[in-house]
Protein backbone atom coordinates (compact mmCIF):
# COMPACT_ATOMS: atom_id res chain seq x y z
CA UNK A 1 0.00 0.00 0.00
CA UNK A 2 2.81 2.39 0.78
CA UNK A 3 4.39 1.54 -2.51
CA UNK A 4 1.12 2.52 -4.14
CA UNK A 5 1.43 5.89 -2.48
CA UNK A 6 4.80 6.31 -4.13
CA UNK A 7 3.12 5.38 -7.37
CA UNK A 8 0.68 8.24 -6.85
CA UNK A 9 3.61 10.64 -6.80
CA UNK A 10 4.76 9.27 -10.14
CA UNK A 11 1.27 9.52 -11.58
CA UNK A 12 1.03 13.11 -10.37
CA UNK A 13 4.00 13.97 -12.51
CA UNK A 14 2.56 12.11 -15.44
CA UNK A 15 -0.67 14.01 -15.03
CA UNK A 16 1.07 17.33 -14.77
CA UNK A 17 2.84 16.65 -18.03
CA UNK A 18 0.04 15.06 -20.07
CA UNK A 19 -3.15 15.89 -18.25
CA UNK A 20 -4.30 12.42 -17.37
CA UNK A 21 -3.10 9.62 -15.20
CA UNK A 22 -3.09 6.47 -17.25
CA UNK A 23 -4.51 6.96 -20.69
CA UNK A 24 -2.16 9.79 -21.47
CA UNK A 25 -2.67 10.12 -25.24
CA UNK A 26 0.67 11.83 -25.35
CA UNK A 27 2.63 10.51 -28.28
CA UNK A 28 1.73 11.14 -31.88
CA UNK A 29 3.57 10.13 -35.04
CA UNK A 30 6.67 12.25 -35.24
CA UNK A 31 6.59 13.73 -31.77
CA UNK A 32 4.62 14.39 -28.64
CA UNK A 33 1.66 16.57 -27.87
CA UNK A 34 2.84 18.82 -25.08
CA UNK A 35 6.16 20.38 -24.22
CA UNK A 36 7.82 19.94 -20.84
CA UNK A 37 7.97 23.30 -19.12
CA UNK A 38 11.01 24.27 -17.01
CA UNK A 39 8.91 24.58 -13.87
CA UNK A 40 7.33 21.19 -14.51
CA UNK A 41 10.77 19.72 -15.04
CA UNK A 42 11.94 21.21 -11.77
CA UNK A 43 8.92 19.81 -9.95
CA UNK A 44 9.55 16.48 -11.54
CA UNK A 45 13.17 16.47 -10.37
CA UNK A 46 12.06 17.37 -6.88
CA UNK A 47 9.57 14.53 -6.87
CA UNK A 48 12.22 12.16 -8.14
CA UNK A 49 14.28 12.90 -5.06
CA UNK A 50 11.26 12.11 -2.91
CA UNK A 51 10.51 8.91 -4.79
CA UNK A 52 14.12 7.84 -4.58
CA UNK A 53 14.23 8.41 -0.85
CA UNK A 54 11.07 6.45 -0.26
CA UNK A 55 12.18 3.66 -2.52
CA UNK A 56 15.52 3.41 -0.68
CA UNK A 57 13.63 2.88 2.52
CA UNK A 58 11.32 0.30 1.00
CA UNK A 59 14.27 -1.49 -0.51
CA UNK A 60 15.89 -1.51 2.90
CA UNK A 61 12.77 -3.12 4.33
CA UNK A 62 12.87 -5.81 1.72
CA UNK A 63 16.54 -6.49 2.04
CA UNK A 64 16.74 -6.63 5.80
CA UNK A 65 13.25 -7.50 6.91
CA UNK A 66 12.98 -11.17 7.82
CA UNK A 67 9.35 -11.33 6.82
CA UNK A 68 10.07 -10.75 3.19
CA UNK A 69 13.72 -11.45 2.52
CA UNK A 70 13.98 -14.76 4.30
CA UNK A 71 10.67 -15.97 2.99
CA UNK A 72 11.61 -15.27 -0.60
CA UNK A 73 15.25 -16.24 -0.69
CA UNK A 74 15.91 -19.57 -2.32
CA UNK A 75 12.31 -20.13 -3.28
CA UNK A 76 11.10 -20.58 -6.82
CA UNK A 77 14.60 -20.89 -8.20
CA UNK A 78 14.94 -20.80 -11.94
CA UNK A 79 18.48 -21.20 -13.16
CA UNK A 80 19.99 -19.59 -16.23
CA UNK A 81 19.54 -22.53 -18.59
CA UNK A 82 15.92 -22.93 -17.66
CA UNK A 83 15.27 -19.22 -18.10
CA UNK A 84 16.78 -19.31 -21.56
CA UNK A 85 14.91 -22.46 -22.51
CA UNK A 86 11.59 -20.99 -21.36
CA UNK A 87 12.25 -17.78 -23.34
CA UNK A 88 11.62 -15.65 -20.30
CA UNK A 89 12.07 -11.94 -20.77
CA UNK A 90 12.32 -8.80 -18.68
CA UNK A 91 13.13 -8.74 -14.99
CA UNK A 92 12.20 -12.40 -14.65
CA UNK A 93 14.98 -13.36 -17.02
CA UNK A 94 17.41 -10.79 -15.72
CA UNK A 95 17.06 -12.16 -12.19
CA UNK A 96 18.37 -15.47 -13.50
CA UNK A 97 21.42 -13.87 -15.05
CA UNK A 98 20.25 -13.79 -18.64
CA UNK A 99 21.42 -10.87 -20.72
CA UNK A 100 18.07 -9.83 -22.06
CA UNK A 101 17.22 -6.19 -22.40
CA UNK A 102 16.26 -4.52 -25.63
CA UNK A 103 17.31 -1.18 -24.23
CA UNK A 104 20.92 -2.26 -24.59
CA UNK A 105 20.51 -2.00 -28.33
CA UNK A 106 18.40 1.15 -28.37
CA UNK A 107 20.45 4.17 -29.53
CA UNK A 108 18.84 6.63 -27.09
CA UNK A 109 19.47 4.38 -24.12
CA UNK A 110 23.02 3.77 -25.28
CA UNK A 111 23.61 7.48 -25.32
CA UNK A 112 22.26 7.73 -21.79
CA UNK A 113 24.73 5.06 -20.71
CA UNK A 114 22.29 2.32 -19.95
CA UNK A 115 23.57 -0.82 -18.32
CA UNK A 116 21.60 -3.89 -17.54
CA UNK A 117 20.64 -4.86 -14.00
CA UNK A 118 21.42 -8.51 -13.54
CA UNK A 119 21.27 -10.84 -10.61
CA UNK A 120 22.22 -14.45 -10.66
CA UNK A 121 20.25 -16.09 -7.87
CA UNK A 122 17.10 -16.65 -9.91
CA UNK A 123 14.82 -16.89 -6.88
CA UNK A 124 11.87 -14.78 -5.77
CA UNK A 125 14.10 -12.38 -3.87
CA UNK A 126 16.23 -11.75 -6.93
CA UNK A 127 13.24 -11.03 -9.10
CA UNK A 128 11.93 -8.49 -6.61
CA UNK A 129 15.32 -6.87 -6.16
CA UNK A 130 15.90 -6.58 -9.89
CA UNK A 131 12.72 -4.57 -10.13
CA UNK A 132 13.74 -2.34 -7.25
CA UNK A 133 17.12 -1.70 -8.76
CA UNK A 134 15.55 -0.92 -12.09
CA UNK A 135 13.48 1.77 -10.41
CA UNK A 136 16.65 3.50 -9.25
CA UNK A 137 18.18 3.06 -12.63
CA UNK A 138 15.10 4.58 -14.27
CA UNK A 139 15.22 7.52 -11.89
CA UNK A 140 18.78 8.16 -13.00
CA UNK A 141 17.80 7.84 -16.64
CA UNK A 142 14.98 10.34 -16.24
CA UNK A 143 17.34 12.78 -14.58
CA UNK A 144 19.81 12.44 -17.41
CA UNK A 145 16.98 12.89 -19.93
CA UNK A 146 15.71 16.06 -18.30
CA UNK A 147 19.24 17.46 -18.18
CA UNK A 148 19.99 16.73 -21.79
CA UNK A 149 16.55 17.57 -23.21
CA UNK A 150 17.14 19.89 -26.16
CA UNK A 151 14.92 22.86 -26.92
CA UNK A 152 13.12 23.01 -30.19
CA UNK A 153 10.02 21.76 -31.95
CA UNK A 154 8.17 18.90 -30.35
CA UNK A 155 6.44 17.78 -33.47
CA UNK A 156 8.17 16.73 -36.61
CA UNK A 157 5.08 15.75 -38.55
CA UNK A 158 4.91 12.39 -40.16
CA UNK A 159 2.33 9.97 -41.43
CA UNK A 160 1.68 6.29 -41.31
CA UNK A 161 2.14 4.73 -44.71
CA UNK A 162 1.55 1.31 -46.09
CA UNK A 163 3.89 -1.24 -44.70
CA UNK A 164 4.60 -3.92 -42.27
CA UNK A 165 6.64 -3.44 -39.18
CA UNK A 166 7.58 -5.53 -36.25
CA UNK A 167 9.04 -3.70 -33.30
CA UNK A 168 10.03 -4.91 -29.92
CA UNK A 169 10.38 -2.57 -26.99
CA UNK A 170 11.29 -3.09 -23.38
CA UNK A 171 8.12 -2.78 -21.34
CA UNK A 172 8.17 -2.95 -17.53
CA UNK A 173 7.45 -6.66 -17.68
CA UNK A 174 9.89 -7.40 -20.46
CA UNK A 175 10.09 -7.54 -24.19
CA UNK A 176 6.87 -6.43 -25.85
CA UNK A 177 6.60 -7.00 -29.58
CA UNK A 178 4.08 -5.49 -31.94
CA UNK A 179 3.70 -6.60 -35.52
CA UNK A 180 1.54 -4.21 -37.44
CA UNK A 181 0.49 -4.21 -41.04
CA UNK A 182 -1.01 -1.04 -42.42
CA UNK A 183 -2.61 -0.12 -45.70
CA UNK A 184 -1.71 2.86 -47.82
CA UNK A 185 -3.55 5.31 -45.57
CA UNK A 186 -2.00 4.10 -42.36
CA UNK A 187 -4.99 2.12 -41.18
CA UNK A 188 -4.12 -1.01 -39.30
CA UNK A 189 -5.03 -4.09 -41.30
CA UNK A 190 -3.42 -6.73 -39.20
CA UNK A 191 -1.90 -6.63 -35.78
CA UNK A 192 -0.20 -9.20 -33.63
CA UNK A 193 1.01 -8.48 -30.12
CA UNK A 194 3.37 -10.63 -28.12
CA UNK A 195 3.21 -9.70 -24.49
CA UNK A 196 6.00 -10.63 -22.08
CA UNK A 197 3.68 -12.24 -19.55
CA UNK A 198 2.92 -15.12 -21.88
CA UNK A 199 6.45 -16.51 -21.61
CA UNK A 200 6.88 -15.52 -18.00
CA UNK A 201 3.73 -17.24 -16.83
CA UNK A 202 4.74 -20.39 -18.68
CA UNK A 203 8.15 -20.29 -17.09
CA UNK A 204 6.57 -19.74 -13.71
CA UNK A 205 4.28 -22.68 -14.12
CA UNK A 206 6.95 -25.07 -15.38
CA UNK A 207 10.21 -24.22 -13.68
CA UNK A 208 9.73 -21.87 -10.76
CA UNK A 209 6.89 -23.57 -8.98
CA UNK A 210 8.43 -27.01 -9.40
CA UNK A 211 10.56 -26.84 -6.27
CA UNK A 212 8.09 -24.97 -4.12
CA UNK A 213 7.07 -27.02 -1.13
CA UNK A 214 4.62 -24.80 0.72
CA UNK A 215 1.31 -23.75 -0.72
CA UNK A 216 1.84 -20.25 0.66
CA UNK A 217 4.91 -19.89 -1.45
CA UNK A 218 3.01 -20.65 -4.64
CA UNK A 219 1.31 -17.28 -4.50
CA UNK A 220 4.46 -15.35 -3.88
CA UNK A 221 6.29 -17.23 -6.59
CA UNK A 222 3.51 -16.58 -9.04
CA UNK A 223 3.41 -12.89 -8.17
CA UNK A 224 7.17 -12.61 -8.40
CA UNK A 225 7.01 -13.52 -12.08
CA UNK A 226 4.77 -10.41 -12.39
CA UNK A 227 2.03 -11.83 -14.54
CA UNK A 228 -0.32 -9.49 -16.36
CA UNK A 229 -3.59 -11.36 -16.65
CA UNK A 230 -5.07 -8.90 -19.10
CA UNK A 231 -2.11 -9.48 -21.41
CA UNK A 232 -2.74 -13.20 -21.45
CA UNK A 233 -6.48 -13.05 -21.64
CA UNK A 234 -6.58 -11.66 -25.12
Amino acid sequence: MYLLNTRETVLDNLERLTGSRINTAYMIPGGVRFDLLPEDAAAMLADLVKVEGEMRRHTGMFETGPLIALRSKGIGVMDREEAIRAHTVGPTARASGVVCDLRLRHPTYRELGFTQVTRTEGDNFARIMVRFQEVFQSIDLIRKCIDSLPDGPIRGGGLCKAGEVSYGGEAPRGELTYSIKTDEYGRVVDIAIRTPSIMNIEACAHSMIRDVTSIADVTSTFISSDPCIACNER
Binding site: M1, Y2, L4, N5, C228, I229, A230
Partner: peptide, 20 residues
Protein backbone atom coordinates in the same frame (compact mmCIF):
# COMPACT_ATOMS: atom_id res chain seq x y z
CA UNK B 1 -14.89 -8.38 -11.35
CA UNK B 2 -12.79 -7.78 -14.42
CA UNK B 3 -14.71 -8.96 -17.46
CA UNK B 4 -12.02 -8.30 -20.04
CA UNK B 5 -10.47 -4.98 -19.26
CA UNK B 6 -7.15 -3.57 -20.39
CA UNK B 7 -5.88 -3.31 -16.79
CA UNK B 8 -6.24 0.47 -16.74
CA UNK B 9 -9.41 0.60 -14.66
CA UNK B 10 -8.18 -2.27 -12.46
CA UNK B 11 -5.15 -0.33 -11.44
CA UNK B 12 -7.26 2.73 -10.71
CA UNK B 13 -9.52 0.71 -8.43
CA UNK B 14 -6.34 -0.51 -6.79
CA UNK B 15 -5.14 3.06 -6.48
CA UNK B 16 -8.25 3.80 -4.43
CA UNK B 17 -6.70 1.62 -1.76
CA UNK B 18 -3.55 3.70 -1.64
CA UNK B 19 -3.11 6.05 1.32
CA UNK B 20 -3.68 8.97 -1.01
Amino acid sequence: VDVGSCNGCDIEVLACLAPR
